Simulated assay, not measured.
Amino acid sequence: MQTSGKFVLLSAIWGGSFALIKVAVDAGVPPVWVAAARCLFGALALWAVCLARGAAVPRDRRTWGHAAVVAVLLNAAPFTLFAHGEALVGSVLAGLFNATTPLTTLVFALLVVPGERVTGTRLAGLLVGFTGVLVVLGAWRGLEGHLLEGGLACLAATACYGAGFACTRRFFSGGGHGASALSAVQVTCATLQLLLIAPAWAGPPSWPGWSAVAALLVLGALGTGFAYVLNLDLIRAAGPAAASTVTYVTPLWSTAIGAVLLGEHVGWHTAAGGAVVIAGVLLARSRQNVKISP
Score class of each variant (00 low, 15 high):
244 S>R: 06
262 L>V: 01
235 I>G: 15
271 A>T: 04
201 W>N: 06
6 K>T: 10
69 V>W: 03
78 P>I: 10
141 R>S: 14
246 V>M: 00
165 F>Q: 10
261 L>F: 09
128 V>N: 02
197 I>Q: 06
285 R>D: 12
116 E>L: 10
104 T>M: 06
264 E>W: 15
237 A>K: 11
241 A>S: 14
32 V>E: 13
32 V>L: 11
116 E>W: 07
285 R>V: 00
277 V>K: 06
60 D>C: 05
142 G>H: 05
1 M>V: 12
290 V>G: 07
219 L>I: 01
87 A>P: 03
196 L>F: 08
190 A>N: 04
94 A>V: 11
263 G>Q: 06
112 V>N: 02
17 S>V: 15
221 A>R: 04
175 G>N: 07
13 I>G: 03
274 G>W: 07
274 G>N: 08
141 R>T: 11
160 C>S: 02
170 R>Q: 13
198 A>T: 14
264 E>R: 13
48 A>I: 15
115 G>F: 02
274 G>P: 00
32 V>G: 12
110 L>D: 03
267 G>Q: 07
48 A>P: 02
132 G>L: 00
163 A>Y: 03
56 A>R: 14
73 L>G: 06
261 L>E: 04
274 G>S: 10
140 W>Q: 12
201 W>Y: 10
75 N>M: 11
17 S>N: 13
287 R>S: 10
276 V>H: 00
18 F>H: 05
108 F>V: 15
212 A>R: 01
234 L>C: 10
48 A>E: 09
209 G>L: 08
83 A>F: 12
19 A>D: 05
62 R>P: 03
78 P>F: 00
167 C>Y: 15
228 Y>A: 08
184 A>L: 01
35 A>I: 11
274 G>E: 08
15 G>C: 05
80 T>C: 14
179 A>W: 10
277 V>S: 11
157 A>D: 01
251 P>A: 12
20 L>F: 03
169 R>V: 09
59 R>L: 08
142 G>L: 01
282 L>H: 06
191 T>R: 01
118 V>I: 13
154 C>E: 03
99 A>L: 06
273 G>L: 01
206 S>C: 15
50 C>W: 01
8 V>L: 10
131 T>V: 00
110 L>V: 00
175 G>F: 09
59 R>H: 09
106 L>H: 11
193 Q>Y: 14
113 V>T: 15
102 P>E: 03
230 L>R: 00
231 N>L: 10
161 Y>G: 03
210 W>D: 15
16 G>K: 00
33 W>L: 08
226 F>H: 07
144 E>C: 12
120 G>E: 04
125 G>F: 02
23 V>W: 07
224 T>H: 08
20 L>K: 07
185 V>K: 00
225 G>T: 11
158 T>L: 02
207 W>T: 15
187 V>M: 01
282 L>A: 14
264 E>I: 02
255 T>V: 13
123 L>P: 02
42 G>Y: 05
123 L>N: 04
89 V>F: 06
262 L>Q: 09
247 T>S: 02
202 A>I: 05
39 C>N: 10
252 L>F: 09
265 H>P: 14
24 A>D: 12
153 A>K: 05
190 A>S: 07
193 Q>L: 14
202 A>K: 08
235 I>L: 13
244 S>D: 13
199 P>I: 00
254 S>V: 04
192 L>H: 09
290 V>F: 12
161 Y>P: 13
143 L>I: 01
124 A>H: 04
15 G>D: 05
255 T>L: 07
